[in-house]
Design a protein around this nucleic acid. Structure first.
Lengths: 192, 192, 192, 192
DNA sequence: TATGAATGAGCCTTCATTCAT
DNA sequence: GATGAATGAAGGCTCATTCAT
C-alpha cells in the first residue's frame, strides 16, 4: 500500500482535475485517499500547501518523459521538437490542474516555491541552448536562462490554448505544435 | 452615483488585486461597493460569473491603451514594441487579477466567454500581422490568426513571470520586454 | 383580464401544487401572476394570509360540484355516495395543496378562519343527516353536526391516503371509495 | 449525556410544538440541543429529513402506550375504546406536531417513509380486527387492512378537530371520543 | 393603484481544524 | 502515527418587505 503522503497527493491531483481546486475539499481528498480526516494534517498544514508538492509531481513527470527519449546526439531542432511534444502531452494529461495549481500558488505565499520546483526544467533547457550556442546552431544574442523561461511560458500557454478548450482535438494540437516549433526555430535562428 | 453593476465590478477588481480571488468574499465586495448583500445577486449569480465581466474590463483597458498611441504609419517593429509595452503595463496594473481571473474562468463553464472577450484583441494583432505580410515586412509562412494568439500568450506569460514575483522591479521588466521583442522580431523575421 | 387579487390566488394555488408551499416564494407567485412584487402587499400582508383565501376557493369548488348534481329526491345513500365522490375528486385535483394549506393554517393564528370557511360544508352535510333522521333513514342516536365533521374528516383522510401516494391509481381509489361508503352506511345504520 | 442524534430529535419535537415547523430554524434546534451547528448535518441533511425520525418517535410512543394496557382478553369494544383513547392522548401531547409533520412529509419525497413508519400500527389494528372477525364479533364484510387505515385516519382527524382548536377542553374531547367510538361500533357492527 | 430595484436580517451550509481515543 | 466525531466561525444566499417613482 502506498505511503499516505503519496496517497494524499495522488488523490488531490485526481480530484482537482475532476472538479477543480475550489470545489475539492479536504474531506473529499481524504475520502478518496481512504484515510482519516486528521491524517491529512500530519502531512500538510493546509490545502494550499499541497500545491508545491503537486507542482513537483508534475515537473517530475515532465522531466522523466523528456529524459526518456532525449538524445543529445540529435539536432537542436529535433530536441526542441521533442520537448514541445512532451510539454503538450503533459499539459493534456493535467490540463485542468496545470493552470489552476499555478494560479493557486500565484495568489499565495507559496509562489517562491514554484520557481524552485521548476528550476531543474529551466536548467535543462538553458543547458540545451547554451550547448547549441557553442556549436553555433543558435544565435548567441540571446540569454539562455531567460530564453528558457520564455520558451516554457510560450509552449505551455500554447498548449493550454488548445487543451483547455477541447481535450481531444489532436488535429488542432498538431497544428499548434508545428506553429510553436516554427516560431521557436525562427526566434532562435535555427536553420533547418 | 455610479451604476450598481459597475460598482460591483470595480470593487471586485480592486479587492481581487489586494487579496486574491479566493480570499475575497462576496461580502467583501458588497461592503467595499457600499451596496446591500442582496443587490449583488440581482446582477451576478455567483462570484465566478463576475470573471467574464472583469476580463471584458481588462481587455477594454488594454485595447484603449493600445489604440491611444498606435500609429499605423510606424514600422511593424515599433508597433509591436508598443503592444508589448502596453501588455506589460496592463499586466503590471492588474498583476494579481490577470492570471487568477483566467484560471477562475478556466475551471468553469465560462471558459468559452474568454475567447469571445479576447476576440477583438486577437483580431487587432492578426490584422497588424496581415498588413505587415502584405508589405513584405513579416514572413508569409505564418498564419496571422494563430500567431496572434501565440504572441499574446508569450507576452502575457513573460509579463507575468516578471510582475508576479516582484511588482516594482522595473529594470528586470525592461530586460524581459527587450528579450520578448527580440524573440518576436526573430520569429517574425523582421529586419531592423 | 382577471382582477389582480384573483390572479394572485390562482397563481399561488398553481405553484403550491407544483412545488409546495415552502419552496414557493412570493417572488414566484407574482412572477407567475405577471404583476409587480409590491402589488402582492396591496392585497395580502403575508404568504400565510393567503391560506384562508385558498381554502375558501377550494371549499367553493367543492360546494359547487356537490350542488351541481345533488338531488334531494335521491336516497340518502345516493346523496352520500355523490358527496364522497366529489370529495375524492376535489382531493385528487388539489392533492398536494389540501393537506399543506391545512397544516399551514394549523400552525398559525389563521386556524380559526378554517372553521369559518368550512362551515357551509358542515352545514350542508348536517342538514342532509337531519332530514334523513326525520325520515327515519338514519339512526337518531347521532348528533348531525358532530357527525358531519367526523364524516368530512374520514372521507378526506381516506382520499388523501389514496391520492398522496399515487395520483392516478383509479382502481385503488374506487375500492377506497366503496369501503368508505360501506363504512358510513353501517355507521349511520342505513339499510340498502 | 444523551446520544446527539436523539438530542436533535427531542429538541426538534419540543420546538416544533412550541413554535411550529416553519418558524423553527435549524439554528434554533441546535441551540436548544446544546450542540454545534455543524453537528446537525452529520445526522440529518435537512430539516425535512427529520420528519420520518420524528414520526417514528411518535408512532413508537403510540405503540408503547397501546401495548401497555392492552389486554387481548378484553372485548373488541374495550380494546377499540382503549386504542381511541391512546390516539387522542398522543394527539393531545403532540397536537401541533402531528398534522404538520405529516404535511411536511406529504410535500416531499419522504412521503413513502410515512407508510413504512406507520406500518406496525396498521398491522396491530388489522390483526385485532381479523381476530374479532374470526370470533364473529366484527362483520366479515370488511377488509381488515383497509379498515385499519380508515380507522386510524378517522380517529386522528377527530382528535385533531378537538385538540387543534382548544388544547385543554377535555369535556369536548370526551364527547368526540364517544362519538367516534359509537361510529366505529356501528360501522363494525359490534353489538354492545 | 402599481411598480420593481434595492434592501439587509438571518438562515442554511460548508469545511478547515481540533482532540480525545 | 492514525482516527473521525465534533466543532463553530464565516460565507453564500434567499426572500419578505419597503419606498421612491
Amino acid at each position: 500500500m502506498m505511503d499516505k503522503r503519496e496517497r494524499i497527493i495522488q488523490s488531490a491531483i485526481k480530484l482537482f482535475q475532476e472538479k477543480g481546486i475550489d470545489k475539492t475539499t479536504i474531506s473529499d481528498i481524504v475520502r478518496n485517499a481512504n484515510i482519516a480526516q486528521g491524517t491529512f494534517y500530519i502531512y500538510f498544514p493546509s490545502k494550499l500547501s499541497l500545491m508545491p508538492a503537486i507542482a513537483e509531481e508534475m515537473v517530475h513527470v515532465l522531466m522523466e518523459r523528456i529524459k526518456e527519449k532525449m538524445d543529445t546526439k540529435n539536432t537542436v531542432e529535433q530536441q526542441l521538437q521533442h520537448i514541445i511534444h512532451v510539454i503538450f502531452e503533459v499539459n493534456k494529461q493535467y490540463s485542468e490542474v496545470q493552470a489552476v495549481v499555478y494560479a493557486g500558488l500565484a495568489s499565495s505565499e507559496h509562489i517562491k516555491e514554484w520557481e524552485i520546483v521548476y528550476e531543474p526544467c529551466y536548467q535543462m533547457i538553458s543547458q540545451l541552448l547554451e550547448d547549441a550556442q557553442e556549436k553555433g546552431e543558435v544565435t548567441s544574442t540571446i540569454s539562455p536562462k531567460r530564453m528558457a523561461k520564455l520558451l516554457i511560458g510560450l509552449v505551455e500557454s500554447a498548449a493550454e490554448q488548445v487543451y483547455l478548450y477541447d481535450h481531444s482535438n489532436e488535429e488542432e494540437a498538431g497544428k499548434q505544435k508545428e506553429a510553436v516549433q516554427q516560431f521557436l526555430l525562427d526566434a532562435l535562428r535555427i536553420d533547418k
